[in-house]
Simulated scan of single mutants.
Amino acid sequence: MKIINMKKFIAHVALVVEDYDDAIKFYTEKLNFILLQDIVLSESKRWVIVAPEGAKECSLLLAKAASEEQKKSIGNQTGGRVFLFLYTDDFWRDYQNMLGIGINFVRPPVEENYGTVAVFEDLYGNLWDLLQMKNK
């Protein structure tokens, strides 16, 4: 039997949020993401997709917590580790812009052998790397 290799990719990463509209506002106004979809599925559930402008495959699915157990995960989906990695083509431009609009950086910029990185938190406290890779 021949196995056919199909192209695969991660399409969405679910991010548990407290409120759809607050999350949309943060990601579109603070991080300049694009709102790709906002579809009402029921009285309490929406299909909300945001992504950085120009993103080709992976985006965030903003998922409103629907239970007490899910609410416990808001802001701590990875147990305190960095959760998501936002790549940039100009670290210092984006870092200064983010500082100027009140994004909280919990670790200052450092030059690593792979690039420049700083850690910030989103509106719920999830940790993100802002990262510009070195050209090879």
Rank of each mutant, 00 (worst) to 15 (best):
K45T: 04
L84M: 06
S59E: 06
D38Y: 13
I4S: 08
E112N: 14
A51N: 09
V82N: 05
Y20N: 05
A66G: 07
G79W: 07
K8M: 11
T116H: 12
I34T: 14
Y95L: 09
N5L: 12
D89T: 12
D38V: 05
A66W: 03
G102N: 07
E112V: 09
F33M: 11
F33G: 03
K25G: 00
N5E: 15
T28P: 09
G125Q: 05
A14P: 15
L41M: 12
A63Y: 15
H12A: 06
Q37H: 14
I49F: 02
P52G: 02
S42K: 05
I49A: 00
F91A: 03
V13C: 04
G100A: 10
F83E: 06
K2L: 14
L130P: 02
I10E: 01
D22M: 12
A118T: 07
W47G: 00
D21N: 14
F120W: 13
V82Y: 11
R81M: 12
I39K: 08
I4Y: 15
K45S: 03
L123R: 10
T116D: 07
K71P: 07
I4L: 13
V48P: 05
L60N: 01
F105V: 07
G102I: 12
M6W: 02
N5R: 13
L35Q: 07
L62K: 04
L61H: 02
P52D: 03
M6D: 11
K71L: 08
F9E: 04
F33A: 04
W92D: 11
F83D: 06
D22Y: 12
L60K: 00
L62V: 01
S67P: 07
L99T: 08
L35C: 05
I4D: 13
K134F: 14
A63E: 15
V40N: 08
I3P: 03
Y87S: 06
W47L: 04
V13Y: 00
R93T: 13
I24C: 08
K25S: 12
G54F: 01
T78I: 06
A14V: 06
R93W: 12
I34Q: 12
E121A: 00
H12T: 13
M6N: 09
D129S: 06
D21R: 13
P52M: 03
I4R: 15
F85T: 05
F83H: 10
I49H: 06
T116G: 01
N5C: 09
V117C: 10
E43Q: 11
C58P: 05
W47V: 02
E57M: 07
F9L: 01
V17G: 00
A63P: 03
E43F: 12
K30S: 11
N135C: 00
D89V: 09
L62T: 02
K64A: 03
T28K: 02
L127R: 15
L86K: 00
A66V: 01
D22K: 15
V106K: 03
N113M: 14
I74C: 02
E121D: 04
F91D: 13
